[in-house]
Design a protein around this nucleic acid. Sequence first.
DNA 1: TTGAAAGCGATACCAA
DNA 2: TTGGTATCGCTTTCAA
Lengths: 343, 343
Amino acid sequence: MSYKQLTLKDLAKQLNTSITTVSRALKGHYSISESMRTKVLELAKQLDFHPNPMALNLLKSRSFTIGVIVPEIAHHFYSMVMEGIEETAVAAGYNVMFCASKESSEKEEDVVNALLQSRIDGLLIAPSKETINYTHLQNIVNKGMPLIFFDRHSADLRVSKVLVNDYEGAMQATNHLLENGCKRIAHIAGPKKLSNSIQRLHGYKDALKNSRIKIDKDLIAHCNLTKEGVADCIEKLLSLKNKPDAIFTYNSFIAFESMLLVKRKGYKIPSDICFIGFANEPVISYIEPQLTTVLLPAYEMGQEATKLFLEQINCKTEKYEPKTVTLQAKLIVKESSLKKKAK
Amino acid sequence: MSYKQLTLKDLAKQLNTSITTVSRALKGHYSISESMRTKVLELAKQLDFHPNPMALNLLKSRSFTIGVIVPEIAHHFYSMVMEGIEETAVAAGYNVMFCASKESSEKEEDVVNALLQSRIDGLLIAPSKETINYTHLQNIVNKGMPLIFFDRHSADLRVSKVLVNDYEGAMQATNHLLENGCKRIAHIAGPKKLSNSIQRLHGYKDALKNSRIKIDKDLIAHCNLTKEGVADCIEKLLSLKNKPDAIFTYNSFIAFESMLLVKRKGYKIPSDICFIGFANEPVISYIEPQLTTVLLPAYEMGQEATKLFLEQINCKTEKYEPKTVTLQAKLIVKESSLKKKAK
DNA sequence: TTGAAAGCGATACCAA
DNA sequence: TTGGTATCGCTTTCAA
C-alpha cells in the first residue's frame, strides 16, 4: 500500500518551469514575477499541493514533533494534562506523540529510546514512580534537546519544570479540616520517594505544627496505590485506640477506595470521619458524600509545559536558563469535609 | 537550539572508509568483511549511533506514524482506547499522534489536515458527534491511505471498522431489567444521529418487543449530553403519570447525572427506580449504589483498530478488502439494577 | 526574473 | 569486498 504524493517537480513540469521557481513562488519569494506567482499558486491550490514534510524535516533537522511520556494515559489527571499539551502544541504547529510508561522505569527507558529514534524536537515527561536512575533523561539534556518535567521531577536535573504547589495544597486541606473542628487528622501518603507525596506530607505536618498540634506518627500511613495498600492503611488507622476524625489522602484513588471501606465499616462521612483528597475526576460530584478535594490544574500544567518547551526551542542564545513554573492547587470544598454542618 | 546528530559520514570518516560500507556493515549486508563489520559495529555502539529516521522516511515515503483522532482525550473510554492503540502500535514499531476533535466537525477537519501534512501512514478515527459531511475522510481513502473507524463510523465509507455490538448490549441491559421485575423501563438515548445511540435504542426496543411489551414513547427521551439535557430528560420522565421503574441510559455521564437528580428528588435506587448505563469508568464502584453497566471493551477496541491498520498497511495486493470487527459489550451487574434483592 | 546544482542523511544499484 | 553515484523532495546559493 502506498500512493503517489504530489511534488514540486510535478508542478514544475505542468507549468513548464523549474522546481526552484515553483518553490519560490509558493513561498512568496520577492524575485518571482507576479504572473508566474499567480500561475503557480493557482495550480497548487487546484491540485491541493502540500510540500512533503519529511523532506523539510530532513533539511531542517527538525521534526516539529514533541514527545510526551505519562505514567498512565487512562488516568483523568494525565489525560487532562495531555489535552493541555495537545491543544497548545497543535496551535503552535507541533505534533505530539504520547507514550505511557505504565509506571515502569524499564518501559520508560524503552519509550524514551523509541521517541528519540523518531527524532522528536523535545520531550515532556512525568517520570514513572519507579524511576530512580535518571541517566536516560540526563542523556537527552546532554544532547542539547529540550526536556521538560511536569507533575513529577528529579531535583538533580537542571531542566525546566511545571510543578504544583503540593505543599501549599496539603496545608490548605489540613487547615480546612482543622477549621472545621477536626482534632485527629490522619494522612494516607503516597509512595515514599515520590516528590509530590513528600511535599504533601510535609504540608500536612507543617499545618499541624502551625496550629501547635503534635504530629502523631500513628496517624500517618504510606500507601503503595493498590487496593490492598489502601485497605491496609485504613485497617491500621481504624484499629487505633484513638481513631482519626478526618483522613486526608494523597490522591483520589486512595480517597475513593478508603471512603468505600470506611462506609462499609459503618462510619458516617463526614460526621464520624471527614475526607479530603487530592483529585481531579469530575466524578467527585457523583460519589456520596461529594468529596472535598485539592484540585490540581492539570490542563494548565499541560499548557505551561508546552509553553516552556516552545520557549526553549525558540531560544536563540547558546544557553537556555531552565525555569520552574509552580502552579497553585485549589481547595474545592464539598460535603465530605464539613463536620460541623453535618453534626 | 539544535544539536549535531551523528551521521554515516561521521562514522565513515573516523574509520577511513565510505558511507556505503558503513551503511552495509550496520545492516549486516553479506558483502562486508568480518573485520570491517565488527569495526563499524563497535564504533556505532560506542558513539550510540542511530540512523536519522527523517532521511529514512523521505527515502521510503513512510513515516511509521499513525494519526489518531478522538472526540475527547480526557474521557475514560477514549483514553482506554488510546492505551490500546499506543501499546499495539509501539510494539509494531509505529509511533502514534493523538489529536482531539472536541466533538467539533470543524476542529476535526483541521486536525485531519494537520496530521495529513505531517505525513502519517494511516488514520484511526472516532468522528465527532457533529460530523455529517465525511468528504475530508473520503479524501483520505481516495488517496489510498488506510483509514480505520473505531467506536463511531459512517456507513457510507467502505473502510475497516471496529465497532461494539451496541444493539446486543442494549438488549442485554433491557432483558436484565425485565428479569428483575421492572415493568416500565425508560431509556435516555444519546444524540439522534449517532450510530451508537441509534443501535442502543434499537436494542432496547427489540428487547421489549421480544417480551411482548408495548413501547411507550413517553419512556424514551433524547439527550444532548449536557447537564441541562439530562435534567430535562429526568424532569420529563418523572413527571409522567405512570412513572418509570427503571432507567437505561445511553452512557455513563447520563447515568451519573440522572442518578444524582433522581436521588435528590427522594427516590431510592434501585428500590424505586433501577439504573443501567453504558459505562467504562472504574469509578462506578465508588458511587452509590454501584452502577450496573454495559461495559465497552475500550482497550481491546484500540488494539483491534491498530491491528486492522497494520494488516492494511502490510497488505501486498492492490486492493485491500475492508473488514469490520464487532466487539461484544458485557453486562456487569452491580447494585443499581437489582430491584428484587433490594425490596 | 529564472534555473542549475549542491546538500540534508540514508539506501541501492552499478562498477571497480 | 569496496566505493561512487543517483535518488527521495525540498531549500538555498550561485550563475545566467
